[in-house]
Structures are given as structure tokens and as C-alpha cells.
């Protein structure tokens, strides 16, 4: 099969299937590439409806009616009533109730099975959409954003703070204790030049660590 006939086959005879594939790809792309969580969920719904559309379209039969019995096949319709009346007047055929349809009439009705499958899928789809939106609201409450990149940044920063802080806190407490001791010694008046030299580098270090840490939450 050469390229031209392939394209014409797809675009002219099976345009519907092409559009389903395009819708599916739009949904898939949105789920992968969009950073906003609500956009991702809309993409998920588009993906879902594309699949439902495909299922419904394979249930279509040419020149077929909807999957509800016409009046002449309806078990409780006027026709059934008539045949019941005929029964009482002594007609031998159709002795009781409705009859199974012939294969010829079966062709006149659309296929009900995909409709049933998709009907429940839609309702379950909205329930899961609601659940996902609840999770989105919770994320927004916790982090103040629903953009994925900002969210990852915030998570990274929170991780950093959580992993670094116990060490720094311990060191700082130690240094503060030492500084207090020195200050007390100084206040007592027993200040010697030797101790001053020793204390100098130590005193700068707590300050610098505090300075390093201070701007971090503001980032």
C-alpha cells in the first residue's frame, strides 16, 4: 500500500477514528506536559472521553435504530396487546408473551453492550475526578500552589531544611553554651589575652552559620 492511498483511507473513510486518536493524544499530552494539576485532570477527562467515544462508535450499525425496542417488538407495546387478544380468540401461534427476535431484526438495533460499559464508566469517571480534585485542594492547602514545578521546588527546600537543621541546631546550641561561658568569665573580670585569641575564631562561626541560615526561609 503506498502513502497516498493510506492517507486517503485514513482521512476519508476513517476520519472518525483519526479524530479519536487526536483527542486521545491531546489528553495524553496534557497529562504528561502540563504542569498545572487542574489542567492535568482536564487532560485525563479528555483522554477518558476519547476512549468512550471509540467504544460508542464501534457499537454503531449502519441504518440501525437506538437500542430500545420499536413498538412492534415491544413486549408491552400495542403489538403485544394485539397478539394477546388474538390468543383469546383462538390463534394457535405465539402461545405466550413476547418472542425472541429474528437475526434479521437484530441487525436493525445498535449494539447495547458498549453503551452499558461506557454508561457506568462516565459516572465512575466523575467520582474519580471529584476525588482527584479533593487531593488537589489538599495539596494547595499544604503548599500554596498547584503548579508542579513550584511544588517540586518547595518540596526540595523542605527536604533540605529537614535534613540540615538537626545538625546545625546541635552545633549552634553548643556554640551558644560556650559563648555564654566566655561571657560569664569575661564579666567575672578574669579576662586573659590568651583566651581572647582562642575565642575569636569560635565566636565568628556561630554568627556565620546563623547568617547562612537566615535568608533561607525567605527564598
Amino acid at each position: 500500500m503506498d502513502g497516498g492511498s493510506l492517507v486517503s483511507e485514513l482521512l476519508i473513510e476513517r476520519l472518525n477514528y483519526c479524530i479519536y486518536v487526536i483527542l486521545l493524544l491531546i489528553g495524553l499530552w496534557a497529562m504528561l506536559a502540563k504542569r498545572n494539576l487542574v489542567k492535568k485532570l482536564i487532560g485525563m477527562s479528555i483522554f477518558q472521553t476519547a476512549i468512550i467515544l471509540f467504544y460508542v462508535s464501534i457499537a454503531v450499525k449502519k441504518d440501525a435504530t437506538i437500542p430500545i425496542y420499536l413498538a412492534e417488538h415491544d413486549p408491552h407495546g400495542s403489538h403485544a396487546q394485539e397478539s394477546a387478544d388474538q390468543n383469546t380468540t383462538g390463534n394457535q401461534e405465539s402461545s405466550q408473551g413476547p418472542v425472541a427476535l429474528q437475526p434479521e431484526t437484530v441487525k436493525g438495533y445498535a449494539n447495547p453492550l458498549p453503551h452499558v460499559l461506557m454508561l457506568t464508566a462516565i459516572v465512575v469517571g466523575v467520582a474519580t475526578l471529584g476525588l482527584a480534585l479533593a487531593l488537589t485542594q489538599r495539596i494547595y492547602q499544604g503548599y500554596g500552589t498547584i503548579e508542579e514545578d513550584e511544588l517540586l521546588d518547595k518540596l526540595d527546600r523542605a527536604d533540605e531544611r529537614a535534613s540540615v537543621s538537626p545538625l546545625i541546631r546541635e552545633k549552634r546550641n553548643e556554640q551558644r553554651r560556650e559563648a555564654n561561658q566566655r561571657a560569664r568569665a569575661r564579666a567575672a573580670g578574669g579576662l586573659v589575652a590568651k583566651g581572647k585569641q582562642k575565642a575569636q575564631p569560635k565566636r565568628t562561626s556561630p554568627r556565620s552559620s546563623v547568617d547562612e541560615e537566615k535568608p533561607e526561609p525567605k527564598k
Binding site: P67, I68, Y69, P75, G97, P98, P103, P112
Partner: peptide, 18 residues
């Protein structure tokens, strides 16, 4: 599916197959 279409009326007497 053809069973559903043909026999729904007999089995359940419901006109709406779905």
C-alpha cells in the same frame, strides 16, 4: 450482543435493552 438484542424482551420484558 445479538443475544442481548434478541432475548431481552423475552427474558426481562424491558423494552430498553441498555
Amino acid at each position: 450482543s445479538s443475544h442481548f438484542i434478541a432475548k431481552t424482551g423475552v427474558d426481562t420484558e424491558v423494552p430498553n435493552m441498555v
